[in-house]
Every structure is written in structure tokens, then in C-alpha cells.
């Protein structure tokens, strides 16, 4: 259990983390989402006692991190920057960590095997690919078989097989009763792994909800229609009491799963349809909507910021 109470971090004028209060519970995977620069990594560093909070408090099972006498068997962490000395072999890197916490040396070989780095255990870390470095970081986190695990963007740089593996790993760790706290930019990724969701933007808490609730509230379905007899179709639908929203281009949108009804109406009144497609607004879109005001670092691309077939569903909603 990780508990944050009014946790705040200021770097000079910049407020990186702003009065965060939430708890991370054992037995489930908690996803930690936010756009670039939202303060996810900073929050995680404060949990680990690396950065001193400007205000507020963070406790792990009631204790401050530096009060833990056996930190690695208590909490394992993968940080964003790969925090490894490149000149040291994977084996020696893990060995020095094991020794610092009195963890039996056999664990080094075990975790190397778990993450699939046994073959390169004696190779220097600087020769590792990004994904291999990520795996080494995960090995270090697992070394003490800890009751709390914290991963900062673990899927970064992993191949599809690796992504699949880390998803299952996180789920099985949580199923064993461990606390699993994982940050990500990708809502779709979290939808597959997380049971609970904490969303922040510009350091502030935006949502703290179960994944199921978030999906129920945000993954709305609608029907997309295109017709050359647009005005006639609008009249017919209006008479039938269906609310229609004009979307981009010549498309129309109807909230809810009413595709059958619309198809029947069109047939009855002899209206030609070019498109009648049930759509699902993506969770990604819901996430972008949620964090829209707090995105600091926009890309300035020439076309509209939101892809057409995403944004359309939300203009009228």
C-alpha cells in the first residue's frame, strides 16, 4: 500500500507535482497516467525517497521510504532513465544490488532467467539494446521478491513479445497479492492491464477511479451515417425522435447503438445510405479529453491536432 497525502514538488517556479492525494492498493494493478511532463516520474522518485517533497507526505505501508530496513524486499522499482553503469555486466549489476540488501546470490540468476537475459548475463550493460536495458531494470525490481512493485513506463522499448510478457507479469504479480503501480502514456495499454486508474495532468489529480468505471463512463458508442439524401434523412430521423449530430465532412452521428433502427427507417423511406457504421470512441480519446487542458507540450503539426475519425465523435457529446 502506497499512500500519498498532499504530495507536492516544486522545481523553482515550476510545480511538477501539485497536492496529489491517493492510495495504491495491494492485489491489483494500478495504472498511473498522464501526458508528458505531468509529473509521473517525479511522483515515483518521491515515493522512493530520491526527491524530497516540497510539501505533503508519502508513506509505504505507513513508513517513509528511508525507514525501510530491507528496501529491496519491500519495494522494487524500475525508473524511467535506465539507471545502470554501462561498464558493469548485468550479473555484477544485480549482484551489487543483492549484496546491498542481503538478498541471497542465487536470486541474481533467477531474475536474469525470469527476464530472459541469462545468455548476456556477463555482457556489459552499455552494449544492451533499449529493450534489454529495460529488462535488466525489471530484473533489478524483482530481485528482492518485493511486496510492492513500481514500474515507470515499462513497455517503453519492448518488442511485442516483451509487451505481452510484461502485461502478464504485472497481472500475475498483482494476483499474488502484491501492490503494482505502473505509469504509462497509453490508455489502451492500461485498459489491458490495470484494474485501477490514477490520471494526473500538470501535477494535479484528474481521476482516481476503477478501470471498469472509467470504461463505462467514457467508452461511448455511436453510429456514423453518410447519405447523399442528407436533408431528407435528417427530417426522417427527427420525426422519429432520434437526435442527430452533424460531424465533420458530410457525416452524421447518432449516439447509442441505434444502427438497426436507422437502417430500417432508411429502407422504409427509400433513402440511400453510403455509410451506416457503429463506432466506439476509444479510451485514448477519453484520456485526451480528460487531460486536454493540462497538456503542456503540444506538437505543432500542420493539420488539425486530433485525427478526424476520433474527434468527430466528441464534438457534439
Amino acid at each position: 500500500m502506497i499512500e500519498l497525502a498532499g504530495l507536492t514538488k516544486r522545481y523553482g517556479e515550476k510545480v511538477a507535482v501539485d497536492h496529489l492525494t491517493f492510495a495504491v492498493s495491494p492485489g491489483i494493478v494500478t495504472g498511473f497516467l498522464g501526458p508528458n511532463g505531468a509529473g509521473k516520474s517525479t511522483t515515483m522518485r518521491m515515493i522512493l525517497g530520491l526527491d524530497h517533497p516540497t510539501a505533503g507526505d508519502v508513506r509505504i505501508d505507513g513508513k517513509h521510504y528511508d525507514q525501510l530496513r530491507d528496501p529491496m524486499t519491500y519495494i522494487g522499482a524500475l525508473l524511467d532513465a535506465n539507471a545502470v553503469h554501462g561498464g558493469r555486466s548485468a550479473y555484477n549489476h544485480l549482484l551489487c544490488l543483492a549484496q546491498s540488501n542481503g538478498i541471497p546470490t542465487r536470486r541474481v540468476a533467477e531474475v536474469l532467467d525470469t527476464v530472459g537475459l541469462t545468455a548476456v548475463a556477463r555482457k556489459k550493460a552499455k552494449g544492451f539494446s533499449y529493450g534489454m536495458g529495460q529488462r535488466l531494470g525489471i530484473a533489478a525490481a524483482l530481485l528482492g521478491d518485493p511486496r510492492i512493485l513500481m514500474f515507470d513506463e515499462p513497455v517503453n522499448g519492448l518488442d511485442p513479445e516483451g509487451i505481452h510478457w510484461i502485461r502478464n507479469l504485472m497481472k500475475s504479480l498483482a494476483a499474488q497479492g502484491r501492490t503494482v503501480f505502473v505509469s504509462s502514456h497509453l490508455m489502451s495499454e492500461m485498459a489491458l492491464t490495470a484494474d485501477h486508474l490514477v490520471v494526473i495532468g500538470q501535477g494535479r489529480l484528474l481521476a482516481d477511479t476503477s478501470m471498469a468505471d472509467f470504461i463505462r463512463e467514457n467508452a461511448r458508442s455511436y453510429v456514423r451515417i453518410r447519405s447523399p439524401q442528407r436533408e431528407r434523412l435528417l427530417d426522417v430521423l427527427h420525426e422519429d425522435g432520434v437526435t442527430v449530430v452533424e460531424a465533420g465532412g458530410d457525416a452524421l452521428e447518432v449516439a447509442g447503438g441505434k444502427a438497426e433502427r436507422i437502417g430500417e427507417l432508411a429502407t422504409r423511406y427509400g433513402i440511400v445510405l453510403h455509410e451506416l457504421s457503429p463506432q466506439q470512441a476509444s479510451l485514448e480519446e477519453a484520456f485526451m479529453q480528460l487531460t486536454a487542458e493540462s497538456v503542456e507540450y503540444h506538437a505543432h503539426a500542420a493539420p488539425a491536432p486530433v485525427p478526424r475519425d476520433w474527434g468527430a465523435g466528441w464534438k457534439g457529446a
Binding site: 530520491l50 528511508d66 525501510l68 528496501p71 532513465a81 539507471a83 545502470v84 553503469h85 540488501n101
Partner: peptide
């Protein structure tokens, strides 16, 4: 190298 973060996490 950033190793210091790992070190200080292992030994607070």
C-alpha cells in the same frame, strides 16, 4: 550513468 538512483533506492 543514473546508477545513483538505483544505489539510493537499494540503500536509502
Amino acid at each position: 550513468t543514473g546508477m545513483i538512483r538505483t544505489t539510493m533506492t537499494a540503500c536509502p
